[in-house]
């Protein structure tokens, strides 16, 4: 591709908006204390909680999101656009609104409160639930796009060879979707790791139980800005590594 040159200054400006805050963050990290700060007990507890909850949320998002994408794909096209918008809502919803919505659904006074409320409230599961809520659309969107790019010819031919629908799904479609699933999973994990608003609103904040790394960062931002910056940098690094390794924009292959 040869882009016209006038794109360059615009790209530079855009990049500045992204890069300058990261540089600013790095400039506030007390580098000599960086290692002790990120390996302090509070930091390790929060990071470990974040990694565990984000992994669980990613797993749940895959288990729920992949079937949703398939069902969306099968819907008649006039319903598909609406259904897709509903499923993808957490992508565009302010996280705090997501937290409120979760509260009204799964909180003690919520719609499903009798079933879940007491069991989930202020436990690690509440964090996982909040993270799954915001992460699931990434899985759906990635697989929805990949399915839309498929012609369905391979599946049709497999069916003529006598394969059942389940066999077509497991031997043809899912193996071909592996890159899309990986992309969706990485984005979902990164989003779950960064989840703040919905967790704060819905799950609370207790060390080792519900206080994930972003909550700890917010809590310590004024009392100990250096520690907050150091921990923030860890999240930035995890995000960069994850996205570099596994995120591949959807390609138009069948």
């Amino acid at each position: 591709m040869t882009a016209p040159r006038w794109l360059l200054p615009l790209a530079g400006g855009g990049a500045l908006i992204v890069l300058l805050p990261l540089v600013g963050l790095a400039s506030r990290v007390p580098w000599s204390d960086w290692w002790p700060l990120v390996t302090s007990e509070a930091a390790l507890t929060a990071l470990s909680l974040s990694l565990r909850t984000a992994s669980a949320a990613t797993a749940l998002a895959l288990v729920g999101g992949i079937p949703i994408a398939f069902v969306l794909h099968e819907l008649p096209s006039r319903w598909r656009a609406l259904a897709r918008a509903v499923v993808l809502i957490p992508l565009v919803l302010p996280p705090v609104v997501g937290g409120l919505a979760l509260l009204f659904a799964f909180g003690r006074q919520g719609l499903a409160g009798d079933m879940f409320g007491s069991a989930v409230a202020f436990t690690t599961w509440a964090v996982v639930l909040a993270q799954t809520f915001v992460a699931l659309p990434f899985v759906v969107a990635a697989i929805d796009a990949a399915l839309a790019a498929r012609s369905g010819r391979l599946e049709a031919v497999a069916a003529t060879l006598g394969a059942s629908r389940t066999r077509v799904l497991t031997t043809i479609t899912l193996p071909a979707l592996v890159p899309a699933i990986a992309t969706g999973a990485v984005l979902a994990f990164a989003r779950a790791l960064g989840e703040f608003g919905a967790t704060l609103t819905f799950a609370g904040s207790l060390e080792g139980v519900t206080r994930t790394a972003p909550l700890l960062i917010y809590l310590t931002r004024e009392t100990d800005p250096g520690a907050a910056a150091a921990l923030s940098l860890v999240l930035v690094l995890v995000a960069i590594i994850g996205v570099t390794v596994a995120y591949r924009p959807a390609k138009a292959v069948s």
């Binding site: 909180g107 006074q109 202020f122 704060l200 609103t201 609370g204 904040s205 909550l215």
Partner: peptide, 21 residues
Amino acid sequence: APDTEELSVADVLAKVSSGQA
């Protein structure tokens, strides 16, 4: 014995008024 240590008094109020706490 807190079940949650909120980041501001407003968050504590929100948890109580919503019946979560």
